[in-house]
Write a protein that binds this DNA or RNA. Sequence first.
DNA 1: ATATTTTTTTAGACAAGCCTAAAACTTAAA
DNA 2: TTTAAGTTTTAGGCTTGTCTAAAAAAATAT
Lengths: 219, 219
Amino acid sequence: MELSFVEENYLKAIYQLELENPSGVSTTALAEKTKTKPASVSDMLKKLAQKELIFYKKYQGAKLSKSGLQAALLVIRKHRLWEVFLVKHLSFAWDEVHEVAEQLEHIKSNLLIKRLDQFLGYPKEDPHGDPIPNENGEIIEIPKILLSDFTTGKKAQISAVKESSPLFLQYLDKIKAGIGSNIIIQERIAFDNSLEILLDDRTLYISEEVAKNIYVTED
Amino acid sequence: MELSFVEENYLKAIYQLELENPSGVSTTALAEKTKTKPASVSDMLKKLAQKELIFYKKYQGAKLSKSGLQAALLVIRKHRLWEVFLVKHLSFAWDEVHEVAEQLEHIKSNLLIKRLDQFLGYPKEDPHGDPIPNENGEIIEIPKILLSDFTTGKKAQISAVKESSPLFLQYLDKIKAGIGSNIIIQERIAFDNSLEILLDDRTLYISEEVAKNIYVTED
DNA sequence: ATATTTTTTTAGACAAGCCTAAAACTTAAA
DNA sequence: TTTAAGTTTTAGGCTTGTCTAAAAAAATAT
Ligand SMILES: [Mn+2]
Ligand SMILES: [Mn+2]
Ligand SMILES: [Mn+2]
Ligand SMILES: [Mn+2]
């Protein structure tokens, strides 16, 4: 079944929201994510349900079906492969890729994505540390812990970022925090939940907001 | 001014038809090229004229304005750069690239196209021998002679193809004719205007139809 | 349990691009 | 020069995806 640009974006948005809220995705949340109004979302949910891409009963939120999930993951696969291409081969910074990848992810050509994957050397992760689904739409979600939830004193590495807005990523560049950086929480400041951290042997302070958008894996 | 996907395609189509018919492009020709109906073209011409991308008076055909020409050439630039990328880096055959490039040409990002150009080493021509416009939308149309119009007995090289459908390009692959191949017309067969040619030292026969879709430059 | 607030859906409209059928204009033929 | 044929435009409609306003349902508070 041939999906439109817009349908693909809705499926992707449902996938992302379902990760945070596995019980079902609400109309308002989806409207916010897709930058539309709830009324528009209602229309689209009806349409996607009719195409059996989602499970949906009035007033009860939406969930991806098998085929909807597959479609969403193939779009995400393309998005992330293009991000790798832009960073590795066109010297884009990691905060510059998302907007372009939002367009490139809708290009329809199986050959293209196959050859791109090959050209890139079958990468497993995108520049933000997110896993790249395989050609069957299967993904291995790596267990990630938010830095804000991590144990004080233990060694860890930055494995991904939750937020990937240019402003946030530029801030991380500024403090020289990237995927793979070593990190230890030295102290939690009770006053504002900010953290004193050791980042690749440099001591610095980061806000709770920042810590809530960095994923780490134990070393 | 932000152009839609569809508007970009119309401008490109007008550009291509204007090359063959500099006096102005007819509604029916444009409908054929864009695979729409003349009625739809009339609507769009009105819209493009209103945006000052074309000159257009009812019943009198269309011509690109300065800004319309620029816009068309920037789309063509992107199309051709992507074709080079697909052939040189993703090992696409020259008959497989056009369809994908039709999609990629509409991706909007100045940075992307700049970096792609750099990555490719600032190519001057696409895989079909067509010149790539520069970043200002300027193009140097190389003087090309159709093989069917070329002098018998003179040495020449294949410099471009007019038609670039997969079927035609696959036929050229089959007879091992590519951009840069050496070619001499040995004899014109009066009966059907077919040609006996010497192609890189092999003698073979090609139809008039084929000869009308190959451009050569004198050696 | 009832009332109030919030969320979701429906109703009705609109823009972009497309279509068919009919009218208007242009060109070619008689 | 009138008629016929071909081309182009207009009129009216359709689809996709969006919106605002109003109605309906669900969640929350009294
Ligand atoms: Mn992204
Ligand atoms: Mn990413
Ligand atoms: Mn092409
Ligand atoms: Mn080409």
